[in-house]
Design a protein around this nucleic acid. Structure first.
Lengths: 136, 136
DNA sequence: TCATTCTGTAATTGTCTTTATTACAGTACA
DNA sequence: TGTACTGTAATAAAGACAATTACAGAATGA
């Protein structure tokens, strides 16, 4: 994959899970992650679109989990942030006149489906509550 | 992960496997992938350092597999190109004064070890020969 | 009502990473 | 000894990612 969106979303969700229903502001969350609050609000927006978070505007607003941490599988977090192929795709189109170049994208995609499946089965087994439980 | 190095290395190795011992030049390979030949030579250099490829300088030089495609596991390719955490790490240090920020890196790393293990077990089961066998 | 404190989002800029390009020394072959 | 390659460094261009600025709109409570 690519960027730091998975760890950022995990950080947000872990904070919300530890807050037990209390609303947390994007400024507070940004202070814990040490990134810009606007980026936090963008990730919150994304997680909300995927049904993991609820948020409230206005004074004393903030974000909270949309369902209990026990019911949030880490595979849902992965799906929420995943945008590029797991092990990357070459930017340019391979040469269609080459027997290998012509077909490689299709076969790489197939490989990616398999390994991503293995990864997802792991992530499905772990809930946000499990993850939070490791903290002391 | 990050960039397009895994698909590029797979493309190189697949071409070499299909060439059956014949030396292929970086220009030819670059033409199939549709990238710059210097980038191909860099990847070849990396794959050579990991024992997957041999190359020969000078006229009629080029690259070839260092061992048979049956003996190259795709996990070896992954290890050769892998440099960043599978699902990314946040660039900035989290706030050490926050109970979550203080520990999250450690717990994310632990999670990454698990899911990367699942991924590697899949890649170990597939050889370069298996991958090439899918081509018609 | 209205100042205050938040979210939501767009637009811009800055920074970092990746890829392309240029250049050239060195090697092998015919 | 010219030609066709690799190997590698240095630089430039392009693209991706994150930070910042700006501001409209929503909820609260004095």
């Amino acid at each position: 994959m690519n960027n730091g969106r998975f760890p950022i979303s995990m950080h947000i969700l872990t904070l919300l899970a530890s807050a037990k229903g209390e609303l947390l502001s994007s400024d507070y969350i940004a202070g814990s992650i040490n990134i810009n609050p606007v980026l936090v609000r963008k990730e919150i927006s994304n997680l909300r679109n995927h049904g993991l978070i609820e948020s409230k505007e206005g004074k004393n607003g903030g974000a909270t989990l949309a369902k209990s941490a026990e019911k949030i599988q880490l595979s849902e977090v992965y799906h929420a942030v995943q945008q590029a192929a797991l092990l990357g795709n070459s930017k340019n189109e391979p040469n269609p006149d080459c027997p290998v170049g012509k077909q490689i994208k299709q076969h790489l995609d197939h490989l990616y489906v398999e390994i991503e499946g293995a990864l997802l089965r792991k992530l499905e087994k772990t809930t946000l509550a499990d993850f939070l439980g490791q903290f002391e």
